[in-house]
């Protein structure tokens, strides 16, 4: 067996490390084993981070109900259960995100500090999504104007909202041609 660290010399030192309640075998050569002692940086693994988050209770803040794996639905598309996910750290298909959304949201907030994507949108969906994002923003503005009793501005915003809503319901994307086709 070759050393896992340098891949150069035969592994002569075999260690068991316990990380996030998971046992891990490490096989190193003598030189690498010595140098492991002088760690400069914490080893980082996304999988172990995730396993740690899922394994411990603190993923879910006290005011939120921690979802019980057995009470979660099973993805109708790929058969993945929430328990499968907590074991592997991986979802099975695109539909899993809808199936487990409720249970995933606290986890996403923990990892990313957010549950809403604000970045790039596939071009075929682009316009609709941008319109809806704009709509959400306008609705927040409207709320603020109403709270401050600034009804004139509120009326302007309300008109804009109406316009965007009309676009969303009746608007077609036909003029949004793909550049390549």
């Amino acid at each position: 067996m070759q050393c896992e660290r340098c891949g150069e010399r035969p592994a002569t030192v075999h260690m068991t490390r316990i990380m996030n309640n998971k046992k891990e075998q490490i096989h190193l050569c003598a030189q690498c084993a010595r140098e492991q002692g002088e760690l400069n940086f914490e080893p980082f693994s996304v999988q172990s981070l995730l396993a740690g988050l899922l394994g411990s209770g603190f993923v879910y803040p006290a005011f939120e109900q921690k979802p019980k794996p057995e009470s979660q639905p099973i993805c109708q598309n790929c058969g993945t259960s929430f328990a499968d996910f907590t074991h592997t750290g991986r979802l099975g298909c695109a539909q899993c995100y809808e199936t487990f959304r409720e249970a995933l949201n606290p986890l996403l907030r923990r990892i990313h500090g957010s549950v809403y994507h604000t970045g790039k949108v596939p071009r075929c969906l682009g316009r609709q999504v941008h319109t809806r994002r704009g709509l959400a923003e306008l609705q927040e503005q409207l709320q603020r104007f109403i709270e401050r009793e600034e009804y004139e501005q509120a009326a302007v915003i309300r008109d804009k909202i109406r316009e965007l809503k009309r676009e969303l319901s009746g608007g077609d994307d036909s003029e949004h041609q793909k550049d390549f086709a």
Binding site: V46, L50, R90, L91, L107
Partner: peptide
């Protein structure tokens, strides 16, 4: 729309 591009690992 909510989660963006979907990936095997969240």
């Amino acid at each position: 729309e909510q989660e963006g591009y979907l990936t095997a690992c969240p």
